[in-house]
Design a binder for these strands. Structure first.
Length: 530
DNA sequence: GCGGATCAC
DNA sequence: TATGGTGATCCGC
């Protein structure tokens, strides 16, 4: 059966659910739907992946296993252990069923009855009463109603949740001047606080949780460990309204982690869990026992991530407020293939995004369109421009161009993502510039390029070739000193004239939309120069 | 850089 | 009747 359709018991409060029964009801409700068929397609792909991995595991001889174990112990584990830091005290706080608890607070009649926040399409949180029936977050409301016909579904009020979230974070500064906080969870480094106050950890955690309760009426759970990974896993162990402290030494950490399911590791979801179980790796201890198999079968990044997690090795800090990498907006709607309807949706999504972008004073290099078809299959299509995108019209026309290329299909979701973000103040110095400036630069190149290409520059704006294509042609670095630059995008370089021409044509072919703007810009720019 | 996938909340 | 939205990362190409 497809992994995504089976009842998933890994959340707090779901232990006592009759799994067989819940799975039966979920399956019965989903059977035959497009969603279900898509889950089955995904399952098939996953099964192929699993088969490959299992076959690969079969090629590992006992001798090789021994050799790998030695290598892993010496070259990975030993240096990690040497670097590891037991000195910090990290607290992870997690509000219990946050949205649902806030609703109970504001509407006490919802207490003690099964209730969830969301809609008949999708739930974001369920209270513990509802969880007894197998109702959980990320479950469609209409399925939840089959599991629990008495379920009350209330619509979310994000504004209210933010308000309370802010209230909570203001209580935390006392313990850590720089807490890392999301809507319903927080990481605190209380090392300094403990030192200054001369209090026991347990005392402090209790104090924090009481403080939150006294100020908001909401309960939370807490985990304490010497890094964020251990603290987070610990929180989960005593939910709701509980706390777990893991002592900062190797033995306590191993004792704590060993018997837990790999699924407790944040970053291991249902797919990775299934992949690992096909290698007989179910508990966190198994990761260490079968480390040679993992090394042999998994990608290096994944291997290191899993083994470090199993050893309880992770950063002490969540890297502080690193600037965002991208921003996106997406909408789901009644499936349609009508260009007029899609155009109108594209406009409203673009508008939202343009306004988000403006609010943070950012510009973007890459635009990605995401489409989900009525059969739930998804695609993304992206372009990277060599000038910066920031205006509504640019977002709309670029995404529309990408969308129309995919037609005709019936679509149920349209998303637009902007990435490669540059703040407007930085954009002056980063070598990228807005469309008008870009055209101006292109025109300045006149003396250096052939007439043919110059005409093209006059006519077109551009979209760069792919990084992949660049790498393909950049193998001989020593030739770089005598390269010519692509007159269209100003980024691609090559000393091979044929390649350069091919690339330039590629650039030109992909920029139709900007032609008009480029020509307008040309007129504006040329006049003052005379 | 692009596209598909996975994951968390 | 009906299965979300946002942000991030990894892998193969």
């Amino acid at each position: 059966m497809a992994t995504g359709l089976r009842f998933n018991p890994h959340k707090a409060g779901l232990n006592s659910v009759n799994e067989e029964e819940a799975t039966r009801i979920i399956l019965e409700t989903s059977k035959g739907t497009e969603f279900y068929k898509n889950e089955e397609r995904k399952e098939k792909i996953l099964e192929r992946r699993i088969k490959e991995v299992v076959e690969l595991a079969g090629t590992l001889s006992d001798e090789e296993r021994k050799r790998l174990e030695k290598l892993i112990d010496e070259q990975f584990i030993a240096p990690w252990e040497k670097e590891r830091d037991f000195s910090r005290t990290i607290v992870h706080l997690d509000m219990d069923a946050f949205f649902a608890s806030v609703e109970e607070l504001d509407q006490p009649q919802l207490k003690n009855i099964p209730m969830a926040v969301g809609s008949t399409s999708m739930l974001s949180t369920a209270n513990y009463e509802a969880r007894k029936y197998g109702v959980r977050s990320a479950m469609p409301g209409f399925i939840a109603l089959k599991l629990c016909p008495k379920l009350t579904i209330v619509p979310p009020r994000f504004h209210r949740y933010c308000e309370i979230s802010n209230q909570i974070s203001s209580l935390l500064f006392e313990f850590d001047a720089h807490p890392h906080m999301s809507m319903d969870e927080a990481y605190l480094d209380i090392t300094e606080y403990l030192r200054n106050q001369d209090k026991r950890i347990e005392e402090v955690i209790t104090e924090i949780r009481h403080k939150i309760y006294d100020n908001t009426g909401l309960t939370c759970s807490a985990g304490v460990g010497c890094n964020t990974l251990i603290a987070k896993i610990a929180t989960d162990l005593n939910k709701p309204d509980g706390q777990t402290i893991v002592q900062p030494d190797m033995i306590s950490i191993r004792k704590f982690l060993d018997s837990l399911s790999v699924r407790k590791i944040p970053g291991v979801g249902k797919v990775t869990e299934k992949l690992l179980s096909s290698l007989n790796i179910v508990s966190i201890r198994d990761i260490i026992v079968y480390r040679s198999v993992l090394f042999h079968c998994m990608k290096r990044k994944m291997f290191e991530f899993l083994l470090q997690s199993a050893l309880g090795i992770a950063p002490c800090y969540i890297s502080d407020s690193e600037s965002r990498k991208g921003m996106s907006r997406e909408r789901t709607f009644k499936p349609t293939s009508s260009l007029e309807e899609l155009r109108s949706i594209c406009e409203s999504v673009s508008e939202l995004l343009a306004s988000d972008l403006r609010a943070e004073d950012l510009q973007a290099k890459t635009l990605t369109v995401k489409i989900k078809c009525s059969d739930f299959s998804a695609r993304t299509r992206a372009v990277t421009t060599c000038f910066l995108i920031y205006r509504y019209e640019q977002i709309l026309e670029t995404s529309w161009k990408l969308l129309v290329k995919e037609m005709p299909i019936e679509i149920r979701l349209l998303g637009i993502r902007l990435s490669g973000l540059v703040s407007r103040s930085e954009s002056l110095s980063c070598g990228k510039n807005c469309l008008e400036e870009f055209i101006s630069n292109s025109l300045k190149l006149k003396e250096n390029i052939s007439n043919d290409i110059y005409e093209q520059v006059q006519e077109f704006g551009c979209i760069t070739g792919t990084e992949y294509e660049k790498r393909e042609t950049n193998t001989n670095q020593s030739e770089m000193s005598h390269t010519n630059v692509c007159p269209i995008c100003l980024h691609f370089r090559s000393s091979n004239a044929a390649l350069l021409e091919r690339h330039a044509n590629y650039c030109i072919e992909r920029q139709e939309h900007f032609m008009e703007k480029a020509m307008n810009a040309k007129v504006k720019l040329k006049k003052p120069r005379r």
